[in-house]
Design a binder for these strands. Structure first.
Length: 549
DNA sequence: GTAGGGTTAG
C-alpha cells in the first residue's frame, strides 16, 4: 500500500460525509481498518465528523479511542483538526464543560477551534459564556459574528443581536447572507419594522437574491411585523424559491387569516414541482385552523400521508384537534385522540382544553385540566384557561380556587406584555403598568377612547376578568390591559393615518378584541395586533379573524 | 482531501 492509495480512501470518506451518506463513510472506514490501510489525521477527522453528523456519539468515542490506540502519533499540528471535531462532538453530546477542557488543553488552536467552542456554548444556551469567549477571541472572523448574533436571537435576546450586528459593521466586517438572516429573525421577534426595513436596504445592496436564507428571513420579518403585502413582494422577487420560502409564505398568509390564499399558494407550490414537507402541512393545517376551514383541514391531514408518505406527527394531530374543537366538533376531536397511533401527550391535551373553553364545556375542561396538572404541573396556561372557563360561567369561587392552587404550587402566570414601535424606539407596556414615562397621558387618552367607543356600542365583557370585584373595577381593569395601553400610546404618537402595529406576548383578550374593533371604526385607523398565535387586522369595525380565533 | 454556520413550523 503506498501513500497515494490512502489519500483516495480519505477522499472517498469525506465525499460520503459531505453528501450525508454517513453509513457508507463508516463502512469504508471499517474496510480501511481491516485492509490495514494507514490512517492519518484526515481519516480520523472525516470519520469523527461522520459520527457527529449522524448523532452517533458513542461510536465517535470508539473512533477516538481507536485513534489514540492504533492511530499515528499526532503532532500538535496534525492533532488540530481532530481536536476541533472533538470540541463539536463533546458539545453536541451535551458535554460543554468537557469541550472547554479540551479547548483549554489544546497546544495549538485556530479560528475553527474558537468558532467550534463558541457554537458549543450557543447550542447549550450558555449565551453569557459564549459572549465572554467571543470578547476574548484573538482570531475574530465573520463566522464568529454570525454565531454570536444568531445565538442572541435564538435565545430571545434580539436587541443584543442588533447591537452586535451594528458593532460588527462598525468594525468593517461584511455580513454574509446567514448573518443577515439571523439579525432579520431578530427584527421579526421584536416586531421592529424600522430596523427590518433598514436591513432590507442593506441586503438589497448586498444582493439577497444570491442568498435564500437572507431572502427567506426578510420575507418572514415582514410577515411577523404585520406587513404581509411586503412579505409577498419579497416572495415574488426572489429568484430561487426553495421549500422554506414556500413554507414561510404559506405560514404568513395563514397567520394573517388569509386561509384561502395559503391554500392557493400551496397548490401553486405543487404545480411548480416543489415537494411539500411536514412543515408545509403544519402550516397549511394552521392556516385552516385560523379560518375554520374544517373540511380542508381534514383533507390535507389525510392527503399528506396518502400522497406524500408523511406520517402525521403529534403536532399535526394537535392542529387538527384544535381545528375540530373550534368548530364545535368536540366528540370528533376526542375520537381522533382515541385513534392516534401513540399516547397523547400534553400538547394534545392543551389543544383539547383550549377547545373546551371555546365551547364552554366545563366538565370536559376539568377532566383534561386534571390530566395536564398531572403531566405538566407547572404549565401556567392550564390554570389560566380553567380559571377563565369558571369565570366566564360566573363560577367565581371555583375560579378563585384554581388560582389559589396555582399560587400554592408556585406557578406564576406569564404577565401580559404589549409593545409598539414609535420613531425607531420600542415601547413596552404591562397590564395596569405605571412604569412608562408618559403613562399619565396614555391613561387620559384611554379614558377618552373608552368614552367614544362606549357611545358607539362597545360594552365591556367583565366575565373575562378573573378576580371577584366590583363591576366598575372590572371595567377599569379591562381598559388597562397591556394591548390597550400600547394602542393608546400609538394613537397619541403616530401620524394621523399611520396604521398602528402592536405586539403581544399572550393571546389577545376577548374584551380587548371587541374594543379594538370599535376603535378601528371610531378613529378610522387600521390597527394590527400580533398576538402569540396569529395576527388580527382591525379595520372599519371588523377584524380579519372574523371573530374566530 | 480535514474541522466551525443560517432561514421556515412551535
Amino acid at each position: 500500500m503506498n501513500g497515494k492509495f490512502d489519500v483516495v480512501w480519505n477522499a472517498m470518506i469525506s465525499g460520503y460525509v459531505q453528501s450525508g451518506f454517513i453509513a457508507d463513510a463508516l463502512a469504508l472506514f471499517r474496510e480501511m481498518v481491516s485492509n490495514g490501510i494507514p490512517l492519518d489525521e484526515f481519516t480520523y477527522t472525516s470519520v469523527l465528523s461522520a459520527c457527529v453528523n449522524g448523532g452517533l456519539f458513542g461510536l465517535s468515542k470508539s473512533v477516538h479511542a481507536h485513534a489514540i490506540r492504533a492511530g499515528p502519533n499526532f503532532s500538535s499540528y496534525s492533532a488540530l483538526p481532530v481536536n476541533n471535531i472533538l470540541i463539536t462532538m463533546y458539545s453536541k453530546s451535551g458535554k460543554v464543560e468537557l469541550a472547554r477542557k479540551l479547548f483549554d488543553d489544546m497546544p495549538l488552536k485556530d479560528h475553527v477551534s474558537w468558532n467550534a467552542m463558541l457554537s458549543g456554548y450557543v447550542d447549550a444556551k450558555l449565551i453569557d459564556d459564549a459572549l465572554a469567549l467571543f470578547h476574548g477571541m484573538s482570531c475574530m472572523n465573520q463566522m464568529a459574528w454570525m454565531v454570536m448574533t444568531s445565538g442572541f436571537v435564538n435565545n430571545g435576546r434580539a436587541e443584543e443581536a442588533l447591537a452586535l450586528f451594528n458593532m460588527m459593521r462598525g468594525k468593517g466586517f461584511e455580513p454574509c447572507g446567514f448573518t443577515y438572516a439571523g439579525v432579520m429573525a431578530g427584527c421579526a421577534d421584536l416586531g421592529s419594522l424600522t430596523a427590518g426595513m433598514q436591513l432590507h436596504a442593506q441586503v438589497t445592496r448586498y444582493g439577497y437574491e444570491s442568498s435564500n436564507s437572507a431572502g427567506n428571513a426578510l420575507l418572514t420579518m415582514y410577515a411577523k411585523c404585520g406587513v404581509v403585502e411586503d412579505a409577498h413582494q419579497v416572495f415574488v422577487t426572489m429568484c430561487n424559491l426553495d421549500s422554506v420560502s414556500w413554507n414561510a409564505m404559506i405560514s404568513a398568509f395563514g397567520q394573517h387569516g388569509y386561509g384561502l390564499d395559503a391554500i392557493n399558494l400551496f397548490n401553486e407550490m405543487l404545480l411548480e414541482g416543489i415537494y411539500p414537507d411536514r412543515i408545509t402541512f403544519l402550516t397549511i393545517l394552521s392556516a385552516c385552523t385560523h379560518c375554520g376551514l374544517v373540511d380542508e383541514g381534514y383533507h390535507y391531514f389525510n392527503y399528506m400521508e396518502r400522497h406524500y408518505g408523511i406520517t402525521p406527527g403529534e403536532d399535526h394531530y394537535a392542529r387538527l384537534i384544535d381545528l375540530l374543537c373550534r368548530a364545535g366538533r368536540i366528540s370528533e376531536a376526542q375520537n381522533l385522540i382515541q385513534s392516534m397511533p401513540f399516547e397523547p401527550t400534553s400538547i394534545i391535551w392543551e389543544a383539547l382544553l383550549a377547545g373546551s373553553r371555546v365551547n364552554g364545556d366545563v366538565d370536559l375542561a376539568l377532566e383534561v385540566a386534571d390530566r395536564l396538572f398531572k403531566a405538566v404541573p407547572h404549565l401556567d396556561g392550564t390554570y389560566i384557561l380553567l380559571s377563565n372557563i369558571y369565570s366566564s360561567e360566573g363560577r367565581y369561587v371555583e375560579a378563585a380556587n384554581v388560582r389559589k392552587l396555582m399560587r400554592d404550587r408556585g406557578v406564576k402566570k406569564e404577565p401580559g406584555c404589549s409593545w409598539i414601535e414609535v420613531s425607531n424606539n420600542v415601547h413596552s407596556f404591562l397590564a395596569d403598568d405605571m412604569g412608562h414615562p408618559e403613562i399619565d397621558m396614555v391613561c387620559r387618552v384611554l379614558d377618552l377612547i373608552n368614552a367614544k367607543i362606549t357611545k358607539l356600542g362597545y360594552k365591556p365583557n367583565t366575565k373575562l376578568v378573573l378576580h371577584a370585584m366590583e363591576e366598575r373595577d372590572k371595567e377599569y381593569v379591562l381598559s388597562r390591559h397591556s394591548e390597550r395601553l400600547a394602542i393608546g400610546f400609538g394613537l397619541l404618537k403616530l401620524p394621523v393615518k399611520a396604521p398602528i402595529r402592536v405586539l403581544k406576548n399572550l393571546r389577545i383578550c376577548g374584551d380587548c378584541h371587541a374594543a379594538i374593533m370599535v376603535m378601528s371604526r371610531a378613529f378610522g385607523r387600521e390597527i394590527i395586533v400580533r398576538d402569540v398565535k396569529r395576527f388580527h387586522h382591525f379595520k372599519d369595525g371588523e377584524c380579519s379573524c372574523g371573530n374566530y380565533w
